[in-house]
Design a protein around this nucleic acid. Sequence first.
DNA 1: TTGCTTATTGAAAATGATTCCCATTTCCAA
DNA 2: TTGGAAATGGGAATCATTTTCAATAAGCAA
Lengths: 153, 153
Amino acid sequence: MSRTRNRNFPWWHQQFVDNGYRITEPRQAILKVLNKTAGHLSVEDIYHQVHKRYSNIGLTTVYRTVGLLENMGIVRKLDFGDGRARYELSKGPQAIHHHHLICKNCGKVIDYKEYLDNELKFVNKVEGLLEKKYNFKIDSHQLSFYGLCEKCK
Amino acid sequence: MSRTRNRNFPWWHQQFVDNGYRITEPRQAILKVLNKTAGHLSVEDIYHQVHKRYSNIGLTTVYRTVGLLENMGIVRKLDFGDGRARYELSKGPQAIHHHHLICKNCGKVIDYKEYLDNELKFVNKVEGLLEKKYNFKIDSHQLSFYGLCEKCK
DNA sequence: TTGCTTATTGAAAATGATTCCCATTTCCAA
DNA sequence: TTGGAAATGGGAATCATTTTCAATAAGCAA
Ligand SMILES: [Mn+2]
Ligand SMILES: [Mn+2]
Ligand SMILES: [Zn+2]
Ligand SMILES: [Zn+2]
């Protein structure tokens, strides 16, 4: 057995290194929560989860980390109109491309993955068009449908 | 000339009446601003505009009215990540169905209207599917593309 | 028109999410 | 191992939005 350190780094490790960001305990803990917990987590949600194991990690750090992850494209910031930002993974093995169906009355949110192929075709066309016409470099999109859920309609 | 009152009500008038909402000066002033001013207005933007003519109308009223209009489907609430809500007409002669292209760096927002027919076809399909599968009543959608603008890329 | 009922309003205070500050700690390249 | 920059955490500060409540004014009935 060599004393070689475990090279089985998490999927996001290299991206941190490439950006010159340090791999700290708070960051690892937060990423772990994001990987393990499904759904649309608020900063407080994450904070509470993280707090179970690391009661020393501060709320401010969660805010900062989540912001960092957003800039890195690892996480996506969502606004469902409940007054607080929510986050979900946009990279990594857990992340599945999807969009949202939102109830305007009770705020229920459904992740849906239907029509991915059609969407891909459609979205690619629009992206190409927009990139050319407006000289943008597009790297993501978001599609949301709004209405009333089963219970609320 | 008859003394008959002008029946040339603004397009949103009937919707107010139908809902039992009163047609007040603040509400008229705010609607007028929304109709006249293009773009994505923050509550403060609206407040400042309105204030030019009606310096007595309060900020709170703008918040309330804009919320009312959102519930009525007259206005759409947008989040471009700058920490304040923004609004645009979603009904009336000024409203043109469109989506947004957003620069993640400088926050520039472009309204685009391309590919409307393709989109309509695609969106209708998805809507139908989602309504059936999740038993929702869908009444609107939002599509946004994110990237870097000409200057920022 | 006049009065009445009650929705609406405005000012000020409260709230609450997010950011800022800064002294202290931690990562990690050399 | 160590110096220095990056990161942290806790409390204060911000600032958009909401709440409160007394005053006002739409709109309906008479
Ligand atoms: Mn989701
Ligand atoms: Mn727009
Ligand atoms: Zn609902
Ligand atoms: Zn830009």
